[in-house]
């Protein structure tokens, strides 16, 4: 509970700082300085973290096998849950990253003690809403390209077109905006109301959810309610990416708030659990093939000085008893 409140207040405070600061003539700070710093932190932090993982050796090949192994030729291998070749492993990873394969397996404990039965029914809600959230995030991010590129590439307008296919409201409603908010809200609600999840939740679990929700809501406010001056904002965005930053007049305070929260997310990202984005690719239980009886896996720090208690020492220890029992020995007594 303390974590939830702290995270919520932190996000409110951050939003207020930007809204008030930009209004008080600090547009330069929020429109130029902060974004550059945030992106720099994101890029440097992200690279540092990934290099830190990648440069650490993985001593053993420890795939978690989720299906039948490659075995005798007449036994059907479960190729993508228990891959034995690099290609199959790539497919496994792709399923993991693009379809959340492991989450798809999720079940829910149902202990009906009075009936003497315990069930583990399929529970795909986390899978569904996570997928909804992540793909909306991705598409929303992609759509933002229109602010940074002139002319706007066809793919971006294409995605926009499909996304607003329902043609309701003015400006037309993006489906991903709805999915995005629904997805985050589900994750947040679950964190609050599922006692198991709430018990394990920390500030750092609530904070990104509130932050992302605030980003989404402020974005929606700008688009559908404040109807901010998009031309001016595009000028600012293009100025930033071309390293000729300008602060056009007529930009609403709500934009600075939205933009600042995004910057906070960038800067926070490399130090947080959001790094699962990079980590999932380096997870040794998923990215290694189960072929360790076919191909020797090398551990760079394998210590050759560790030797078994030798047979010779063993025989020295037990020779007489062995001879007496009629067991063959290498050296007679």
């Amino acid at each position: 509970m303390a974590g939830l409140v702290t995270a919520f207040l932190a996000v409110v405070a951050l939003a207020a700082v930007a809204a008030l600061g930009a209004g008080a003539g600090m547009a330069n700070v929020f429109g130029i300085a902060v974004p550059y710093v945030a992106v720099a932190i994101f890029v440097a932090g992200f690279i540092k973290k990934v290099i830190g993982w990648a440069s650490t050796p993985q001593p053993f090949s420890i795939a978690t096998t989720g299906g039948q192994q490659q075995s005798l030729p007449w036994i059907k291998q479960s190729k993508f849950d228990n891959p034995s070749t690099p290609f199959q492993t790539v497919v496994r990873m792709a399923l993991e990253v693009l379809c959340f394969r492991s989450l798809f397996r999720n079940t829910k404990l149902d202990n009906r003690a009075s009936e003497g039965r315990v069930g583990y029914g399929s529970d795909k809600s986390l899978w569904l809403f996570s997928l909804m959230f992540h793909y909306s995030f991705l598409i929303v991010l992609f759509r933002h390209m229109r602010f940074f590129l002139e002319p706007v590439p066809m793919v971006v307008t294409g995605v926009e077109f499909v996304d607003s296919i329902l043609q309701i409201a003015a400006p037309t409603l993006y489906l991903t905006d709805v999915f995005f908010v629904v997805g985050v809200s589900f994750l947040l609600a679950r964190r609050i109301w599922d006692p198991k999840v709430s018990y394990i939740s920390l500030v750092s679990d609530y904070f990104p959810l509130f932050l992302i929700l605030a980003i989404a809501l402020s974005g929606i406010y700008m688009r559908y309610f404040a109807k901010v001056d998009v031309i001016a904002i595009k000028q600012l965005a293009i100025g930033l990416v071309s390293f000729k930053p300008v602060i056009p007049p007529n930009i609403d305070w709500s934009f600075y708030m939205h933009f600042f929260l995004v910057c906070v997310l960038w800067a926070y990202f490399p130090f947080s659990k959001l790094m699962h984005l990079g980590g999932v690719f380096l997870s040794p239980t998923r990215n290694l093939p189960n072929n360790t009886r076919m191909v020797r896996y090398i551990n760079p720090w394998n210590d050759p000085s560790i030797k078994p208690h030798s047979y010779a020492d063993y025989e020295d220890d037990f020779r007489e008893k062995m001879i007496e029992a009629g067991l063959p020995v290498d050296k007679e007594a």
Binding site: K49, G52, W53, A54, T56, P57, Q58, P59, I62, L126, S130, D194, K196, V197, I200, S201, L202, D205, K273, M275, H276, G279, V280, L282, S283, P284, T285, W301
Partner: peptide, 16 residues
């Protein structure tokens, strides 16, 4: 020595 440990320490999202 163990990338597994390092990655597992860093990436859990406590999704439960």
């Amino acid at each position: 020595k163990y990338r597994s440990l390092k990655v597992f320490m860093d990436v859990c999202v406590r999704c439960g």
